[in-house]
Design a protein around this nucleic acid. Structure first.
Lengths: 170, 170
DNA sequence: CTACTTGCAAAGCATTTGCACACAT
DNA sequence: ATGTGTGCAAATGCTTTGCAAGTAG
């Protein structure tokens, strides 16, 4: 059972339809890079003359998240990023390079377990979590060599966005 | 040395001024609840007839974050929340109740250590991190008793925001 | 058939910005 | 004085929505 069937089942289950646009979008997503924004996807479709509106892109992405075929991630203030869902499998978290915006994934069983304990200690029923580590990836550390890494520009990303490179928040 | 002095020093260091508005805002923040949005603060000031514009509220919050007197948090898609910075002290993370929006704080040294290891393993220079656990606080779990907790309404917060209660993303 | 979808343009929201005026130092 | 800061309103950027027309089942 592939994603398309899964999507169709999901849609049928709520009396919704598998349209041309929805199918096109699902297929195109299979070839997107790991993390993409609604606009990234819209641009790709537009360049390929698929004639799908931005509204439909947004609506379909939301459906795919509901169908658990995509996960929505929220590291960049101002817009969501999507990634293919690792089908019920292992959860993963992210290392986000604040310089080049590259995103690495990690999974650590010990951390997963410890956070369960934390939740229990607070009488908290954990449903999901996000764990983002912000910093410089290997490549960017090397580029930074010589520059002052502790300067606020890196160490304290500002809240006031610079529109070019988004700030990192806690 | 209190926050006001610290802020003044920070401002002076960059040739900026401590204005009436900035002082009023700083003082008012000391009486805000733990986590507040720019708009929460603006509303309070407006009700108290302080005559401070929204633009100034935003500009001042950004300054306070730069001055490390506030931290900006980003759990809710669409707007930032601020909290008083725990002066250089111990970092903490958050448990966010998706039902009542209450936010609890936690600190776990083991997790902190493990994530350092993860970063190292990926040749990543960690600068900051965020770790948010979403779920139901004890109070809301009890209220939920009898309802179907695994229903998508709770288990799979949708991307499509309901405008009233914001969705949770990963 | 007929309810669900789409495209378009307009609306929303939180936040930022341009500008003329006001104010700390 | 003079460079900063402020209020206002307009601009942004991403995302959602209303509505008339199109389409899947």
């Amino acid at each position: 059972m592939d994603d398309l069937e899964r999507f169709q089942d999901f849609l049928k289950a709520q009396g919704q339809k598998l349209t041309q646009q929805r199918e096109t979008i699902l297929r195109r997503i299979e070839q997107m890079e790991e993390h993409f924004s609604a606009d990234d996807l819209y641009e790709v479709l537009r360049k390929e003359r698929k004639g799908i509106s931005k509204a439909t892109v947004y609506r379909t992405l939301a459906l795919l998240v509901e169908a658990k075929l995509l996960d929505a991630l929220d590291f960049e203030r101002g817009h969501l990023l999507y990634e293919r869902a690792h089908g019920g499998g292992e959860h993963h978290d992210h290392l986000v390079c604040i310089r080049c915006r590259r995103i690495l994934e990690f999974h650590n069983e010990d951390i997963e377990r410890l956070q369960e304990e934390v939740a229990k200690r607070y009488d908290f029923h954990m449903i999901s979590h996000t764990h983002h580590i912000y910093g410089l990836c290997g490549r960017c550390q090397r580029k930074e060599r010589g520059r002052d890494l502790s300067s606020e520009e890196v160490d304290r990303p500002r809240v006031r966005p610079s529109r070019r490179s988004r700030p990192v928040t806690n």
